[in-house]
Amino acid sequence: MHAKFLVQNFNLETANALRRVMLAEIPTIAIDIVEVLDNTSVLADEFISHRLGLIPLCAKGVEEVQYSRDCDCEGYCELCSVVLTLNAKCTSSEIMKVYARDLVVSTSTANEEVGRPVITDPEGKGSCIVKLRKGQSIHMRCIAKKGIAKEHAKWAPSAAIGFEYDPNNKLRHLDYWYERDMKEEWPVDEETANIDGREAEGEPFDYDAVPSRFFYNVETVGGLEPDQIVHQGIKVLQRKLAETIAAVQGGDNADGVDFGGAQSPQMNGAGYGGQDAGFTTPYGNTSVWGAGTTNGAGGTTPYGATPYGGGY
């Protein structure tokens, strides 16, 4: 499903910002934690978990779900997550395929839609997760959480986003390379080219011109309707700008209010669950230059005393 639209009288920076936001900062919901209760299938636990994470879940009304990190609960709760259960066992001699439709929402959720696996194929099966042979079974508790694609691609609402301006290259941003004949070698999208207005013969080059008309083509992964992605994108972008303005103006009316917007993962911070800041060593934070050791630097190592130093 696509949303094909164009934006006019716009500037490039904001246009690209919208594209970026639609790609990576619209909150959606995806399976984040998998509790493996049983897995006798041929695929490894982490491999199935990865597949589960990539299954698109419906993100309609995801605003009603809280970010897990903002929630007061420990771990996860109904307010900040959707729990899906996958429980399948093959009892027939035929090979059984486990599909996305077999993911069952098993807790009460913020609304009807959020967290349901998106199924678009005519048979209503969804994507295949794993195949089971007779006697094999799989039982997993999948906790879907809200997140953005900046953190992990599984939260991406959109697939590719087509983005284009100046199809007739009137701005001369691009210097087309061709072997013999440019017209023969380069394809032209008639539709966009006509909308943007073809270059007239002998038209003088306007070196002050800037791009102002942008052609978008947003394709959804399934979690959100494509138009919703655009709406959400604008919303997220506005909120980000508002936050920035508030921060720049400095506490007039913001008072440190967190707009509850999306947050980029922190490289060394809590986002990934408390790695160290990078300046500790496995041997502790001491160096040969002293600080801490009592019997002189260099005398001891974590592996015991050296035959030199100390000991006198």
């Binding site: 594209r19 941003h173 210097d175 390379w177 072997e179 070698e185």
Partner: peptide, 19 residues
């Protein structure tokens, strides 16, 4: 394009590359 080239845009600025 016949020779496999495509116009591309910078993901950071959104501007079309010169080549």
């Amino acid at each position: 394009n016949y020779y496999g080239n495509e116009p591309m845009y910078s993901g950071i600025t959104g501007q079309e590359f010169a080549a």
